[in-house]
Design a protein around this nucleic acid. Structure first.
Length: 267
DNA sequence: ATCATTTGACCACC
DNA sequence: GGTGGTCAAATGAT
């Protein structure tokens, strides 16, 4: 799956490069070559996806379906078309104009003290996520397939629950600026409000990022988040959405008010 | 030894 | 000055 995503994101990058170089002076040969590369990449990715889907349908016919949750029209559309990609389609708030998502601190870390980012920097998305209630795990929100490292926790005024601060595990290695804040809702302790800031410049999935030998130097610089999100925003605009993750251990129902799990406690 | 988490302190913003 | 975001040392886990 990661390989397929890499192909898609490489294709997106090629499109961007083409967009940059697009001009009347561009030779038809060059344009044709670029378009050929792009269509080949997307075509191959699509073929592999079809194979993947065929295998899945054959092997896991009785996979439990998630209970319905209130999701946006975009979410439903994405779930129908690309269930595995669903968790990466987040409708973001801000971060649309430039496609640039490097943390300002990372880009000016020479001699001056790194500026600490403050709230309302316009580069964030917020989603509501059901807690992983199964297996007694109510301490953490469900895995979103990225490797996060916790770097802080704060009591927030007016909130019963502390806010946890995470950044991408690969921040140092690959200068990935992605961060997220996780906080339980006062009104629904079984739901987390997860705020993402900056997008991943690495795109390792899972908590064991080096699982695939292919997913090393060739893929770390593929910047796919904003491109995917741009598509989402183009269709729906900014909004907050409830994200149903695809992992089977998700307690989808717990998002629905009045259907709040089995009463786990915090540590 | 290495990496992740905890937690008090520091600092920027309002 | 209060609050929220981050740093970094201490500690724990593997």
């Amino acid at each position: 799956m990661e390989e397929i995503l890499s192909m898609i994101f490489n294709g997106i990058n090629l499109v961007k490069e083409l967009e940059f170089s697009l001009s009347p002076q561009e030779s038809p040969e060059s344009l044709s070559s670029s378009l050929g590369s792009i269509s080949t990449l997307f075509g191959d990715a699509n073929e592999r996806l079809k194979i993947l889907l065929a295998r899945r349908n054959a092997w896991v016919p009785n996979q439990p379906k998630p209970k319905p949750v209130p999701v946006s029209g975009l979410d439903q559309m994405m779930m129908q078309s690309e269930p595995d990609l669903m968790q990466d389609y987040r409708v973001r708030q801000g971060e649309m104009q430039t496609g640039k998502s490097m943390d300002s601190g990372a880009s000016c870390a020479f001699l001056t003290p790194r500026p600490r980012r403050r709230k309302k920097d316009g580069d964030e998305e917020t989603v509501l996520v059901a807690a992983a209630a199964r297996m007694g795990n109510m301490d953490t929100p469900p895995d979103d397939n990225y490797a996060w490292r916790k770097y802080g926790q704060k009591e927030i005024l007016g909130s019963r629950f502390p806010r946890a601060y995470y950044r991408c595990t690969h921040q140092k290695l690959y200068k990935c600026p992605a961060k997220k804040q996780v906080q339980r809702l006062d009104e629904d302790p079984y739901t987390f409000r997860v705020t993402y800031r900056s997008s991943h410049t690495c795109h390792f999935f899972t908590t064991s990022p080096i699982s695939s030998p292919a997913a090393t130097a060739t893929t770390v610089n593929v910047h796919y988040g904003p491109a995917v999100v741009n598509m989402a925003e183009a269709m729906l605009g900014n909004m907050e959405s409830v994200v149903p993750f695809s992992e089977p251990y998700f307690n989808y129902g717990s998002i629905v008010p009045g259907d709040a799990g089995d009463g786990e406690t915090w540590k």
